[in-house]
């Protein structure tokens, strides 16, 4: 059985008087197996972060999960009470936010913040929680954890803070770790180290991961499967090797062509024409059709259904059917 299975999940933002509805996540189905890593790729505003926050049911007040099911370890998370949901967060599903400088509380020591989930979820005493916090800092390769636990976030570098956020995430031994663009604010050498750390943690602890990113290089390096989102919809999903070698959706193809390659220096980089659509007023038919180089008449009128291109490779494109 799969660890996580989303079935037809839709999350909408509703404006103050209900006048405008934004379909941030629209009819998304996907699965994550034990120990697997799924990459979710898409432009800013394509619904990646809303999808992740929907899993944890920590959406902003204007957002509503309007339909679908979220099956995690055999339970539908959407039927859980607030109290039950709280026991899932941080304990069974953890999430790493984008900005390490802002996601630690400036007024509390590192030790306090790393020990906190242990004290809340496992009722650990202060002493044993702090001892575990020191072990966790060691696990994320922070030197001299004995002194670091007593320090405040502003005394540490960005890379160290990101590791501490990682230590908080793995503190209660979650089954699933969601990382939302975890390396965008780090410089390149630190990025590589951090990705390596996440991979090692995943291997050592048998974690499943969801990696939200717009960086296909990271997907190629980190993920087993990839799901491509466009305007709230999943337009293509499949194993990483398969998607990189034979993408079926023109949007995925365009994304792959926009990666700079060292080998052929003469070829110009291709960009995707046009702008991402306004989420409040999506174009009719396939939302990608105004920017699609292979657009058909049908694409302007009818939204394509999800089509199986090959085993565990799906695409929402009329060309694929």
């Amino acid at each position: 059985m799969k660890l996580l299975e989303l079935r037809h999940l839709s999350t909408h933002y509703v404006s103050a008087r209900g006048a405008r509805v934004t379909r941030a996540v629209d009819d998304v189905s996907l699965t994550v197996g034990e120990g697997e890593t799924l990459g979710i790729v898409g432009e800013s505003g394509s619904g990646k972060t809303t999808l992740a926050l929907s899993l944890l049911r920590l959406l902003p007040p204007a957002a509503r999960i309007v339909s679908g099911e979220i099956w995690f370890e055999g339970e539908d998370l959407l039927t859980k009470s607030h109290r039950e949901m709280r026991r899932v967060r941080g304990k069974r599903i953890a999430m790493i936010l984008q900005d390490p400088l802002a996601s630690l509380n400036p007024l509390f020591t590192v030790g306090d913040q790393v020990a906190e989930p242990l004290r809340v979820h496992e009722g650990a005493s202060r002493g044993s929680a702090w001892a575990r916090a020191r072990e966790l800092l060691r696990a994320v390769r922070i030197a001299a954890p004995e002194t670091r636990v007593r320090e405040y976030p502003h005394q540490l570098s960005g890379g160290m803070r990101q590791r501490i956020v990682g230590a908080i995430a793995i503190s209660c031994g979650p089954r699933l770790l969601i990382a939302d663009e975890p390396t965008t604010s780090l410089d390149l050498t630190i990025q590589a180290q951090y990705l390596q750390l996440l991979r090692d943690l995943q291997r050592d602890r048998g974690l499943s991961m969801i990696f939200i990113t717009h960086n296909l290089g990271i997907v190629a390096r980190m993920c087993d499967h990839v799901a491509v989102m466009y305007a709230g919809r999943l337009v293509e999903a499949g194993p990483v090797a398969r998607i990189f070698s034979s993408a079926a959706h023109p949007y995925t193809q365009a994304l792959l062509e926009s990666i700079p390659r060292m080998a052929d220096g003469r070829k110009r980089l291709t960009a995707i024409d046009g702008q991402p659509p306004d989420p409040v007023a999506l174009p009719p038919g396939c939302a990608f059709h105004p920017r699609c180089p292979k657009v058909l008449d049908r694409c302007r009128k009818e939204a394509p259904p999800e089509v199986r291109v090959a085993a565990s490779h799906t695409s929402r494109c009329w060309l694929a059917s």
């Binding site: 944890l56 920590l58 709280r86 026991r87 899932v88 967060r89 941080g90 304990k91 953890a94 999430m95 936010l97 900005d99 802002a102 996601s103 630690l104 509380n105 400036p106 509390f108 906190e116 989930p117 809340v120 979820h121 956020v165 908080i168």
Partner: peptide, 22 residues
């Protein structure tokens, strides 16, 4: 609205603790 309050909620802390402490 800060990221650290978001993280406190992601940790699964009770809302009262998120508000009173963080």
């Amino acid at each position: 609205g800060s990221e650290y309050v978001k993280l406190a909620r992601l940790k699964g802390l009770p809302e009262a603790l998120v508000i009173a402490k963080h």
